[in-house]
């Protein structure tokens, strides 16, 4: 009996070690793919965040040096195989602005890199290792919430739809809410909404003074948009 238990423990430990080793190997493959695909020619892969408007203007694609704190892995795996437009006016809207009596935007370029399923899984594994150590975790409290109350707060009071497209309607200078619940880690949403400049000092989203229950309502609503 004792010997059987010992055998079991050895097998489980070996399996765990194998899983850990293969996921680390996968992340290493992902890092190599990021390098060979020259992702860093558009994305900032290492911190710190830029601190001047000149550097913001030069930004070609979203920062990825805290991707592991920001994204849900499952979403990353799908997205990397078929990248879609998340920011209707491009990464930095000013770069695609068509000035006129009523300003409009030109069609922004899409990410040219498309990975196969294996590559996407490896890169997602690697990206998930890129964390923001200062981000508070375990703060998003998901549960039942009133969608009507959330929409009242998000649309009427905070007017998030002024800059974000929500349920098919809204502004274009910031990322769309379409599929945002699948895309973003709820803890990241909590931290970012609470203080956007914590991640991106010059980002064109203002910090809002929100009560904890209102912040949780926003996080819950966003998490529900899958």
């Amino acid at each position: 009996m004792k010997g059987k238990n010992m055998k079991k423990t050895v097998v489980i430990t070996a399996l765990l070690a194998l899983v850990l080793a293969s996921s680390q190997a996968f992340a290493a493959d992902g890092a190599a793919l990021v390098k060979s695909n020259k992702c860093d020619s558009c994305h900032k892969m290492t911190g710190p965040a830029v601190k001047t408007l000149k550097e913001i203007e030069a930004r070609k694609a979203p920062d990825l040096f805290y991707a592991g704190s920001k994204f849900n892995k499952d979403w990353l795996v799908k997205f990397l195989q078929n990248p879609s437009q998340i920011r209707p006016a491009g990464t930095v809207y000013t770069n695609f602005l068509k000035k006129g009596e009523q300003d409009t935007v030109a069609e922004p370029p899409k990410c040219a890199s498309k990975l196969d399923a294996g590559g996407a899984a490896a890169v997602a594994d690697y990206l998930m290792t890129l964390k923001d150590a200062s981000m508070k975790t375990g703060v998003a409290k998901l549960g039942e919430f009133s969608k009507a109350k959330a929409k009242m707060l998000i649309i009427k009071t905070e007017a998030c739809n002024g800059c974000h497209r929500i349920e098919g309607n809204g502004g274009v200078s910031c990322p769309t809410f379409e599929g945002i619940g699948a895309r973003l880690n709820p803890d990241f949403v909590y931290n970012f909404v609470q203080h956007p400049q914590q991640f991106d000092p010059k980002i064109w989203m203002a910090k809002r003074e929100l009560a904890e229950n209102d912040l949780q309502l926003i996080v819950n609503y966003i998490a529900s948009l899958k």
Binding site: L53, K54, I56, A89, Y93, T94, L97, K99, G100, E101, Q102, D103, T104, V105, A159, N161, G162, C163, N169, G170, G171, V172, S173, K202, W204
Partner: peptide, 26 residues
């Protein structure tokens, strides 16, 4: 530079209130 990034999205590049987000504001 600050106006060009933070204000233009709603107030427009000419400052006339016709930014890219303006059509969606109540």
């Amino acid at each position: 530079a600050n106006y060009a990034l933070y204000c233009v999205q709603c107030h427009g590049s000419a400052g006339t209130g016709k930014g890219i987000n303006a059509p969606y504001l109540a």
